[in-house]
Amino acid sequence: MNQDQHVDYLLRLGDNALILGHRLSEWCGHAPILEEDIALTNVALDLIGQARMLLTQAGAVEGKGRDEDALAFGRDVLDWRNVLLVEQPNGDFADTIARQFLFDIWNHQVFSTLLGSTDAELAAIAAKAVKEIAYHKRHSSEWLIRLGDGTEESRARMIRALDVHWGFVEELFTPDAVDQAAFEAGIGPDLAALRPEWDAAVAAVLDEAGLERPEVGWAVHGGKTDGHHSEHLGFILAELQFMQRAYPGLAW
């Protein structure tokens, strides 16, 4: 694995965490109940904390003097390496839970593997993050069951939300040259090999919720590999990066 690929791989992990963390932070003050407002922002805080460590490590491996802030606030859309799933809008509460659930199950698998990464710093970050992600996974799984097995209204919304997000799952498991190089270097997991376990874990929760696995017949790719993002990422960055764009180098 060359250095560029190593940096790219770390950016993917860091960008996933930062963009999803930012999305969840948008719920602050808007969640359906107080406990959920606190829960979603706690998950956001965990993810943003993980993003800080991952982007710091990306900058260190890159060796060009870019720190976490330079990477978070100084890159435009095409340079972001997050998967398309995490930048999808919050929608209603069922949309947020569907997006979170599909991601959490995968994210927990990935970080469990990263515990044994040959990138020692990444392994150390994973040791901390994986315990936090276990809480995220339990939270989104419980809500998926509660909504799927709830009222007629909540069930209908949960089914629709899973349909809306299901087409973004393929990208999580489709390795490109960077993922493959990370796997061969012992830095990251064999993505395609994670799929059967993910399918089984998701099926178990869907079953508990009385829901069917969606059959949507479409899938999109391109966020993590080419920076071909949905229009949503631009709006996220406009807010996320505003201060550093308006006042470059601002510090306090």
Binding site: E35, I38, A39, N42, V43, L45, D46, G49, R138, H139
Partner: peptide, 13 residues
Amino acid sequence: RVSEFGSTACKAL
């Protein structure tokens, strides 16, 4: 347990 997420990152309610 009311919620696994509380007033700070380290607390549940």
